[in-house]
């Protein structure tokens, strides 16, 4: 693991059925959009290599899952080892906005991350290309209400995107990558999952300095 290593960052996209999880992933990785994506069943991922922070190369492994809740119980295996979680809603569907906190809770329960308090989440409101009249009224207010009351008052980054028109998608995932990289480095330093024999190292480390600075 020494030397110039390639970093693989694991990102999970969650959110209600039909908010555009597959479309976001496809737009970011393959720069394409189709009206005919089928409802995702099971799980799949795509990878994309990008450079961030002074040309550091990282590979994003982006996991797309089914939106219907009952299928999440089988997702344990995908959540493990995640470095960042993208919570998606549809700006024309208020229910999908209200469900963000359940998706977050679901993720934390299943992923068993070591730092649930400061694990990096990012919020994406998709479909901003749709006519304004169809959008959730006073979205900003509702959104900040949800982040402060339900999402623990943490200032998760929020992006409003259009997977269809490729608006803000690139930017959102760049932030995802940065946050994921920080999480990954944190895990590296904690070393907890790296090597069973290195547990002793943890004694000399305090993780306080490495909290998420988002």
């Amino acid at each position: 693991m020494s030397g110039r290593k390639k970093t693989l960052l694991k990102v999970i996209i969650l959110g209600d059925s039909g908010v555009g999880k597959t479309s976001l992933m496809q737009q970011f990785v393959n720069n394409k959009f189709s009206h005919q994506y089928k409802a995702t069943i099971g799980a799949d991922f795509l990878t994309k290599e990008i450079s961030i922070d002074n040309n550091k190369q990282v590979t994003l492994q982006i996991w797309d899952t089914a939106g219907q809740e009952r299928f999440q119980s089988l997702g344990v295996a995908f959540y493990r080892g995640a470095d960042c979680c993208v919570l998606c809603f549809d700006v024309t569907n208020e229910k999908s906005l209200n469900n963000l906190s359940s998706w977050k809770d679901e993720f934390l329960v299943q992923s068993n991350v070591s730092n649930p308090q400061d694990f990096p989440f990012i919020i994406i409101g998709n479909k901003i290309d749709v006519d304004d009249s169809k959008k959730i009224p006073s979205l900003q207010k509702k959104l900040s209400n949800i982040t402060s009351n339900q999402l623990g008052g943490l200032n998760y980054p929020v992006f409003e995107t259009s997977a269809k028109d490729a608006i803000n998608v690139e930017q959102a995932f760049e932030v995802v990558a940065k946050m994921a990289l920080q999480q990954e480095e944190l895990n590296d330093i904690n070393g907890g999952v790296d090597d069973d024999y290195n547990d002793a190292i943890n004694i000399h480390l305090e993780s306080d300095n490495y909290g998420c600075a988002c």
Binding site: M1, K6, L8, A77, G81, D194
Partner: peptide, 18 residues
Amino acid sequence: GNDFDSARVYLAKWASQV
């Protein structure tokens, strides 16, 4: 090939988690 190697190392870590 190299990417796969580093990816393997990375994943080996969380594999031990499971």
